[in-house]
Design a binder for these strands. Sequence first.
DNA 1: AAAAAAC
Length: 477
Amino acid sequence: MTLSFTGLGLSADKVHHLEKLGFREPTPIQAQAVPHLLSGRDVVGQAQTGTGKTAAFALPLLEQIDPRIPVLQSLILTPTRELAIQVCQAMRDLNTDRSLKILAVYGGQSIDQQMRRLRRGSQVVVGTPGRVLDLINRGALNLDQVNWLVLDEADEMLNMGFIQDVETILNCTPAERQTAFFSATMAPTIRELATKFLRSPVTVTVEAAKSAPTRIEQRVYVVPRGWSKSRALQPILEMENPESALIFVRTRRTAAELTRQLQAAGHSVDEYHGDLTQSQRERLILRFRQQQVRWVVATDIAARGLDVDNLTHVINYELPDSVESYVHRIGRTGRAGKEGMAISLVHPLEKYKLRQIERHIQQKLAFAKIPTRAEIAARHLERLQAQVEDAITSERLASFLPIVSQLTESYDLRTIAAAALQMAYDQMSPSWQRHEIHTEITETERHGQRSPSKQGRGKSSSKQRRTIQPSASSSQD
DNA sequence: AAAAAAC
């Protein structure tokens, strides 16, 4: 069954704007939540990561705010600053006629500037709890007229550490407001707690889409006894050669240390965690989105909501503390109907954590063997061959023919071709010759880690339906 | 116990 946005009760204007943006069909969570939200009901919305939750609350919200009144009418709370920025941007993108003023407020940025902007009369504010409270206490933010309240990543917002601030903020809003809680995860205890803030809510739960189990391939590598994780990570990265990856660790310190190691090995990688300044954080996310950095080593600051287009890999260098966090972490990839790979590294003693995760996601996780040096070399040669075949059909090929003609005066064609391939191979694996990688992988072979070489993974399919999905500029959860 | 979130 397909629905149009019109069928959801959105205005003709809005539907027309959505079509101009290329959005024709609502995702399941949008199809189910939007009508309830338009009818004024409180909603608890639960749907998988990357399936359009932001638009599910943003569309009805934007339609019901009165653009003629220059007063704050809607507040959205998020658990991280970057998420506030992202949700704000997504809402501005959907506010196609620019009739509403939408502002993100969060810590680490000049509060004076945010206060000046607030004075100009924002109708929608997206913010993190600490800064929102600060602004309330300074008299710069008045929630008296807020009739729309959204908790994004609601279960996290109701967790210890956030709940007190969130409750204080909620108490500053009118009781007759409309409230929506959205998240991909909602533990029963949190769901119970949530009802305390909602008025006879409708619960909208979207079951896993049919493509869901295959959308993200999950794989587990058991780190051999006596090995460090960083030693196990090297051959996996060599084998996978992720185009873009989020590598999750548990602490800021480990993030910094692992980043240092990977940088020393010549990789394009940077760290992302709460020890950085706000401008460092924002700059990094921008560079990552623009693919100026291939890999990011992050704490759980990046676990939720963050939407980076074409993220191919999520790597759990260390397993998260909560099963919910696992679900959110791997959900950074495989977004908007694309494929993704989620890899977890576990010590033998951590296998019990794995079983908790398996129970929660109701899936068995596949174990993989750490690739040997020979398998990695074979994979590199496969890639090289594929690249050569691509190059043969390229238009630029002809421009290299004169050089070949010149070289044939001194060498035969096979020798020239082999030399060119050798150069390409060395370009492709600059760290290949490095001593530490060499010895570690030799060590792997001594441990008898062998498995058949796997076929390279196909690129994610480009033939997807156009729906309102996360992209670099708009996000859904 | 750690991470996130205000100055």
